[in-house]
Computed example of a mutant assay.
Amino acid sequence: MNPSILFSAPYRKIARDGLWDNNVVLTQNLALCPLLAVTGTATNGLGMGLATMVVMVAASAAVSVSRHLIPAEIRIPIFVLLIAALVTLVDIFLNAWMHELHKVLGLFIPLIVTNCVILGRAEAFASKQAVMPSMWDGLMMGAGFTLTMVILGAAREITSQGTLFANASVLLGEGFQFLETIIIHDYKGFLLTALPPGGFIMLGFMVAAKRLLELKFKKKTQAPLANLNDSILEGGEL
């Protein structure tokens, strides 16, 4: 595969959809259960996001490869079985190699099977596209989800504990020790943001911030067009 193809217009659109325009959480408002339950820290959010992203990429590839072999009448049950098999592999890997993280994420790893985003992308995109675009779509959707998980987890962790990526070396391995940071020393903590209701409130602020940024960008792009139209009208009057 030519790496330059990733910079082509279709691949750029897929990336923008996954990371921003059609973000799993901030736009589609999906996968809120693991989002609110797991993102007590940025480390947990990163681990859960990466696990979900791996499943999304692998599921998209598997569905795309087998799209011509699967009868349309039973495609959804087969997609679910493929996703369940991949989640089982990820669950076994985490339990074997990242046991502490596996204990923290707990039941939410097997529940990736029920994440409607993965099945939705398999049905709406991977089942109709070639392998590389499908994998790229899974990667970008997963990256957008992971980024949102990490940002929300970081905001909740800083406001509740005054730290950032606490226990990263314990949960993810010694290679992640550089991420561990104390933001506020001797911080007493704010309990609400450590609980799911506080996470829900902070998620609302994130969604509102995204909408405001989109409105601001839209106004900036429309302003030159409005000025151009005014200039054309003025020129016609002259």
Rank of each mutant, 00 (worst) to 15 (best):
V150W: 07
G49N: 05
L147M: 12
Q129G: 00
F176T: 01
T41L: 09
F7M: 12
V25S: 08
L81N: 14
L192S: 06
L6S: 10
S60V: 01
G45Y: 01
L191R: 08
I5V: 14
P110E: 02
L94T: 09
G142K: 11
K220P: 00
P196V: 07
K210V: 11
N95D: 15
G120T: 07
T27D: 11
S66K: 10
N29Y: 04
V117A: 13
F7V: 01
A130S: 13
A194R: 13
N29Q: 13
N167P: 02
N2S: 14
A168D: 05
S169F: 04
G153K: 01
P3A: 02
I158T: 09
V207R: 14
P77W: 15
K188M: 06
V80G: 09
G175L: 07
L172V: 01
I232C: 09
M206E: 09
W136H: 11
P197L: 08
Q161D: 02
T193H: 00
A85F: 10
V65K: 04
A85M: 08
S8W: 06
G47N: 04
F7C: 09
L139A: 15
S160G: 00
F200I: 12
P71K: 05
N44A: 15
I14H: 03
I74F: 12
P3L: 07
L107C: 01
